[in-house]
Design a binder for these strands. Structure first.
Lengths: 345, 345
DNA sequence: AATTAGCACTCTCGCCACGAGAGTGCTAAA
DNA sequence: TTTAGCACTCTCGTGGCGAGAGTGCTAATT
């Protein structure tokens, strides 16, 4: 399959690099001049014809310059993935920002989104780390007013969920505290099934709470994509692909429809994947909305404890050389933070 | 100032209504035909000339139809504000959605954003209700691992804030519970100053926690724009104003830069304001980014307890007749929910 | 005095032709 | 294998042209 000569490879790289920069079809002559190649335009033309034949390049119209195809980008990315790395100074700057910031998940997520958007000049998407298997840690019941009770639920990973529930009748704080204390003792460290198996030997109030609690834990464990942190929308809106074509603009529905994003993130079987970073180019056939876009994704966190996803969405003509290492690096950074904060063994 | 004849008024209304629908300059002949007016185009032309003279209309080029000016929209809105109201069926549908939904602020906010975006076909912005004066209600300290401690802080309004803090040395859960219990007793119902004035008679651990607690309460009380819920981005991107002009697209930075939004929301002195709904047209001179846009805003909640803001951002050519009553109605709905949930007499 | 018909004028927009420029493929020579 | 040369293609910007829509003004009408 890999029939590319060395020269064809570098040529392909150059075309793609140029196109990423200029967003304009690249011609043989322009390429020679720009990089002072020791070859004539005619030779380049021949090579380009070969690359076009092989499906890595494409001409928008007869007798226009060449533009990379999806396969072209894929090849480019697969070559790029392992070698590319972020300069040390950038790495330091970024990690410095993280470590000097407040110990606050919310803050970290925002920071990650901001860094990704800035480095890649595209739209960043970050989901908060979510516990894989919700395990009960602590429950708190606080009467707020009348029949309204605030239930605060803490998971082993440190995840907190709060909910206001309305009881059938007013219950004094004392009684609530008793119930909470009892449940805390019984339920400690149990997962969803564990909690479900407790149902015996409780009174009506505790039974009610148990039910809600199960719902909550199931929600946390299963779905709860939670908040999606994002940044750099304006980056991507400035790109010609998005201002011109309706097609690309439609990709921003991902932004609003969490279910799509959910699908996207859970789809772990992807074409180009090295070092934990996955690159989805042009929707890979399945994603109508992403036909003109690329997505660079990575999971982060500690498997079995808590994980999240982060990534960058941009035009197919995206600065992969910068984006991929950034995504990888930030994912690593967040993984460290998760493991530090949530404790692992 | 109000020199408009009755006929001029209705004419202005018609032009604006048409322009809102079609986004195209409105000519005299087209207007007559469309509404079967008992007047000739020539008469309309004269009236239009007068309206143009007065600054309510404008022609993009000599000999093109007329387009409303900002002042035109303002006039339109001021006429529209009081009379317009949402049809009963719509009101019922919306409030039904709210009351049958889970008792969950997060859910309400999303729902509000969704309803606003849908009704107005524009971009909706909703901030969570935030307590005006944070009052301490309850504190919980939970040891997670080693020196990491999870602090859960509950305010009187039901607002919850969590934070992970790292102690100088490991402290057993027992000790933490003691400290929490003590602080809970002392601090009950105090506001920020109240908490600050306690500092005496506590040991090092409690002192540390007190400091963090103050910070947190201050954060909740003062700033904490909190999450901004939003929906309908695609609505607004589909509008011609946003696809064509860079100017309008720049308005979406409001979206990303919370500080701007913050400014916007706190600016309560606005030109057209009736029934709690405020309409900002074309940035009103101060907002560079909004030159091509309009914003319909309202505060909701219970003053002195908890309030939030919600609104809609769209092109100046926005469906005010539908948007304004919707904003007003949803604001009222959320106010009721806040007052129900957070108590208050 | 208000309304309208008529008319000349203006400006946009779509269409088409045209030439410049950039790029291509192919063939033949180096 | 590379390159020079050449004929060819296609886009794009420009300018001319006519249709269409709209305007303002004046004079006639009600």
């Amino acid at each position: 399959m890999n029939e590319l000569t060395e020269r064809q490879k570098t040529l392909l790289m150059l075309v793609i690099r140029d196109y990423i920069e200029t967003a304009q079809p690249i011609g043989s002559k322009a390429l020679v001049e720009r990089y002072h190649l020791d070859l004539s335009p005619a030779t380049i033309r021949n090579e380009m014809a070969a690359l076009t034949e092989m499906g890595y390049l494409r001409q928008p119209h007869t007798s226009a310059g060449r533009v990379p195809t999806e396969d072209g980008y894929r090849y480019f990315v697969s070559q790029m993935m392992h070698k590319a790395d972020l300069p040390d100074t950038v790495r330091h700057t970024i990690s410095h920002q993280f470590y000097q910031s407040r110990q606050d998940v919310d803050h970290w997520m925002n920071l990650a989104a901001s860094v990704l958007a800035h480095q890649s000049q595209a739209l960043s998407l970050v989901t908060a780390p979510r516990v894989e298997q919700a395990r009960f840690k602590h429950l708190e019941l606080i009467s707020t007013q009348g029949r309204q009770v605030l239930m605060v639920l803490v998971m082993v990973g440190g995840e907190v969920s709060q909910q206001i529930l309305t009881l059938a009748e007013p219950v004094p704080q004392e009684r609530l505290s008793q119930a909470a204390a009892r449940l805390n003792q019984i339920l400690s460290n149990r997962d969803v099934e564990g909690v479900a198996s407790v149902s015996a030997r409780t009174d009506a109030l505790e039974q009610d709470i148990l039910t809600l609690l199960q719902q909550d834990m199931r929600r946390i464990g299963e779905q709860s994509p939670g908040e999606i942190y994002t940044d750099g929308l304006t980056n991507v809106l400035a790109e010609p692909e998005f201002t011109d074509s309706d097609d690309a603009r439609r990709a921003l529905r991902l932004f609003e429809e969490r279910s799509m994003l959910q699908d996207l993130l859970s789809n772990t079987v992807m074409k180009s994947s090295v070092g934990g970073v996955q690159v989805l180019i042009g929707g890979e056939g399945t994603w109508e909305e992403l036909r003109q876009c690329s997505v660079v994704l990575a999971r982060y966190g500690v498997p079995g404890l808590a994980t999240g996803t982060l990534g960058v969405l941009g035009p197919m003509r995206m600065a992969y050389a910068r984006t991929i290492p950034t995504v990888r690096f930030v994912a690593g950074l967040l993984s460290d933070l998760v493991s530090d904060t949530m404790g692992g063994e």
